[in-house]
Simulated assay, not measured.
Amino acid sequence: MHGEFKVPGGKLVVVDLDVTDGRIADFHLAGDFFLEPDDALLDINAAVNGLPETADVAQIAGAVRAALPEDVQMLGFTPESVGTAVRRALVTAAGWRDFDWEVVDDPAVSPMMNLALDEVLTERVGDGRRNPTLRIWEWDESAVVIGSFQSYRNEVDPDGAAGHGFQVVRRISGGGAMMMGAEQIITYSLYVPSSLVAGLTFADSYAFLDDWVLQALHSVGIEASYQGLNDITSPQGKIGGAAQKRLANGGVLHHATLSYDIDGQVMTEVLRIGREKLSDKGTTSAAKRVDPIRSQTGMPRRAILDEFMKTFRSYTGAVDGSITAEEYAAAEELVRTKFSTERWLHRVP
């Protein structure tokens, strides 16, 4: 069995193993990480050999850590990443390049259509009717998108939203509200089969699916890293956050929103907890703009998106794709029956 795990912001961990009588055998660790002393590699191999095939990441990491000398230096990987690679081998997880990827950068649609397309395309990837896909969001009107489990009245000031021309909509994934003004944010969605994240904890899957984004941000000069469950950050403050929704048919939606250039004052008038959000992004004054990408790069938003897509293509071998007429039609029906309804918008009052 063979398993690989690219440590977010770190190195590639590769494992090969057999299973004999319910226990791991003939285990070998490899990768482009750094390890001192050199013979600690043999200690890791010995620690994993003989573990039950049901061992989870924590058990494997504990065995590795206990076997290592006190002066060991592990650079670019951890005992937990070894455990993750082992679990991915045992469940025969797929890698990024095991799939034929598409990148979709279609013309702008309404915020509700963007939300409906997320559901439609995730379902089709889960059913095998669409290749795994990266889709760049573009929208033709401003909106506040609240998380699936957020309270409408706790999150949004309706008068402020209306006064600034922001429609309020609700998405199918959890997480916090995002304010989608024209040219102010960068949003993308990944539609992937569950086999890509097999063997990963739910928390680890967030950083795993956004590792290519860190590479893209590094390529434009931003020292980005992953923090906590779902935050992308830099030394100048938070850049953005991700959210997921997993469907019963095996389709996984992972999407993220990054702040390009947001008007902080408007945020405090549209979102009830805008001041806390600004503080989270390292901005002390509501009058300032939340602009970690624009200020750190000086690049136009479209140029940043081009770099994102370039990085993703090199990471996955993706080709350009497009949304089909049938997919658009299915999304339009979902807008009519779900996303435009008061029942959905106020499912959490």
Rank of each mutant, 00 (worst) to 15 (best):
P69Y: 02
T92N: 15
L51W: 10
Q73E: 12
T78D: 06
V82R: 06
L51H: 09
D39M: 10
L42D: 14
G50Y: 10
D98T: 05
V91M: 00
A66I: 10
A89L: 09
D71F: 09
S81G: 07
L90F: 04
L75Y: 09
A93E: 04
R97A: 09
R65E: 14
Q59T: 03
Q59G: 00
P69M: 04
R87Q: 04
A61N: 10
M74H: 05
G95Q: 03
A93Y: 02
R65D: 11
A63F: 05
R88P: 00
E70T: 15
W96M: 00
R87L: 06
I60L: 08
F99S: 10
S81D: 01
L90E: 01
T84C: 04
V91F: 01
Q59P: 00
T84L: 03
I44S: 04
E36P: 02
T84G: 04
A40D: 05
D43T: 12
E70K: 14
R97F: 08
E70L: 13
P37H: 05
L35P: 10
D39Y: 13
T92H: 14
T78A: 06
A61Q: 12
V64A: 06
L35T: 03
M74Y: 04
V72M: 10
E102G: 08
R88W: 01
D39V: 12
R87N: 04
T78W: 13
